[in-house]
Design a protein around this nucleic acid. Structure first.
Lengths: 353, 353
DNA sequence: CGATTCGATCGAATCGATTCGATCCGGCCG
DNA sequence: CGGCCGGATCGAATCGATTCGATCGAATCG
């Protein structure tokens, strides 16, 4: 019949049918401003009759200047970003502070050649999750758009609120424990050094070229104690990568073998331990293994890992709070979180004396 | 100086500075329509001078009627949704079909009392992930907004494109294997039956009241073979919930013990096996355990589980494709996926003969 | 009883772009 | 040389709401 029937109903249509102005109808839905009960009823009735589902979010966003969406930018592939339990914990924290407050989280996997142009995504703020400097130009455009940015464990970026972790210092403390136990032959198993995620021995060149902030910081902390430690970079924070790295490092003559491994994540550490077990190397008697994160893994027997426990949920909460503060017009203070060394059962005195 | 300096620059401002109309400037950024090279250069120059970051996504969304965002609705808490490896695989599939095509994925944890009103979220389409009928009213509003909806493993909902899995039939096939092996005493360990996620023995009442589609379907499949099987519902698809369920079912006199457990997920199955190990019950000699999903778990020793392998990544791909088809104006065909029984090492003949 | 106030409602401007049809102009064809 | 064509550009309408200031009665107050 009327062509109002087949095109999506609008606020204007509802207002017309209710015999009020669009402004009044808007008041009914937004709840702001006083509306007589009778009027409200008439508007709602008209809305129901027309099948109006409420104000169009897009139009509302334009007018209000708010979308209710917060972007979470990661350089991982979609699924991989959440395969790391540390990110799940972080997500729990973000959920508390943002999702529970009505924000939607827009997950944006970013790659240099990605199809998503970050600056073209409708969002109120963005959280950069372990992002490298490769993002700089995208970040620049987001800043131009006056979008508040919060970066978790990222190199200092002007105007971006940092949520920092004591990666270097914590690793240093772990390394000092190993030194105190007499270890001198140390090998590092690091997180990926760049987006290419090449699994390969560490070299000064590769380290210098690293774009991965967290990995570099943790290397730095280890080097503060063991300046000459070698090692390998893994292709990801997974048990199997840790295992592969472990094989590479440990499947050598006993004299060339490290007496301790500093792994940059618990998953990597577990992989290394598995490799050691397979090679008949006893942990911790013949090999000490240090992890990082302090995760509890779905269904994994407690390894009682010696590790640096980071406040992952709090990291997410802090980021979420920072976003909310920024959106409220305040300037969020930078946050620096600290990790704690948990002495488990995977380190012991060096077998070499 | 000029107040154009402190307020965010707009396309109109850029156009004015470049001495062209807004329409032409728009053409430059959108790439549609012919623009003389000299003009383009002038516009880009003006944009750079003003610090214009490109068209405002919100305004563009309103005009174009597209946001580039696809919602993913889950009834889990944010982090929990991705703690289940099956959802990670699904996310991989979604990533391939959507994220890689430039769509952003907006994760929307939904709860009956949630702060997010789904119909008020700016998005082009939504994917319902294992959602119960509680969502019905929200879904209804989304439909009014003419938003294409795709539901993964959900009860048939008018006008929603279903991506189905043969939950009942696959479970039935698994159950038949157990029967063929002589099992008669069967216990089920089910996924949560409702949003409350109560861990409790199955009763006809609780089963009837279940709002969890997948759980109900799998129960139905099992009951097709073992009409009287009892069991417990778990509080989540986790190893520890499986363990708890396992203790509850197995820590009884041997004569009352089931000879086989049908777990509704691999994580639950692993938990049950762990409970059995702890109680000194041999799997599979004294207890057969059947899983569902066919996942490979980070760092978990291969249990060589007998399980129903579901095409999880394909589920995500199918959903992503359906969304894209719907947005292209086509009517996506329903998809029905099938699972495959993988005979591992956790089932054997019934010890009772 | 007149002035003031308050609640309800309305008009019009605005958010920032996109897009369609019209216009302008230089070059080409007959 | 006139008419035509097509590329480049422009104007104006539009997307669908929100919001500010104005208006209009009715109730309150002195």
């Amino acid at each position: 019949m009327s062509d109002a029937a087949n095109s999506r109903p609008t606020l204007a249509g509802v207002a017309a049918r209710a015999g009020v102005s669009a402004s009044t109808a808007s008041l009914v839905f937004s709840g702001a401003g006083p509306v007589a009960d009778a009027t409200r009823a008439r508007v709602l009735e008209a809305a129901a009759a027309l099948g109006y589902a409420g104000p169009d979010p897009t139009a509302r966003s334009l007018r209000r200047g708010r979308t209710g969406v917060v972007g979470v930018v990661t350089e991982d592939r979609l699924g991989d970003a959440f395969r790391d339990p540390i990110n799940l914990a972080l997500l729990d924290g973000l959920g508390e502070e943002l999702a529970d407050e009505g924000f939607g989280l827009l997950v944006l996997p970013w790659a240099p050649d990605s199809a998503v142009e970050l600056a073209a995504v409708p969002m109120d703020a963005a959280i950069l999750l372990g992002c490298s400097a490769d993002l700089a130009s995208s970040v620049e455009r987001l800043r131009r758009r006056r979008i508040p940015l919060v970066a978790i464990e990222a190199p200092p970026l002007g105007d971006v609120v940092p949520i920092e972790l004591d990666n270097a210092d914590a690793t240093r403390r772990g390394a000092e424990l190993l030194r105190a136990l007499g270890h001198e032959q140390i090998a590092l198993v690091t997180l990926p050094l760049d987006v290419a995620r090449t699994r390969a021995p560490l070299t000064p060149q590769r380290e210098a070229a690293s774009t991965a902030f967290t990995a570099s910081e943790r290397i730095r902390g280890a080097r503060a104690v063991f300046p000459d430690a070698g090692g390998v970079s893994a292709g990801g924070s997974t048990v199997s990568e840790g295992y592969a790295a472990g094989r590479a490092l440990l499947d050598v003559p006993a004299t060339e073998r490290p007496t301790a491994v500093i792994a940059q994540s618990d998953l990597l550490a577990i992989g290394v331990i598995r490799a050691a077990e397979e090679l008949g190397i006893d942990v911790p008697e013949e090999l000490s293994v240090l992890g990082f994160d302090g995760i509890r893994l779905q269904g994994l027997t407690a390894h009682d890992l010696t590790t640096l426990v980071q406040p992952a949920v709090e990291k997410g909460r802090a980021a979420g709070r920072a976003v909310r503060e920024a959106l409220a017009g305040d300037l969020p203070a930078p946050v620096a979180l600290t990790s704690e060394l948990r002495r488990g059962a995977t380190v012991a005195r060096s077998p070499i004396e």
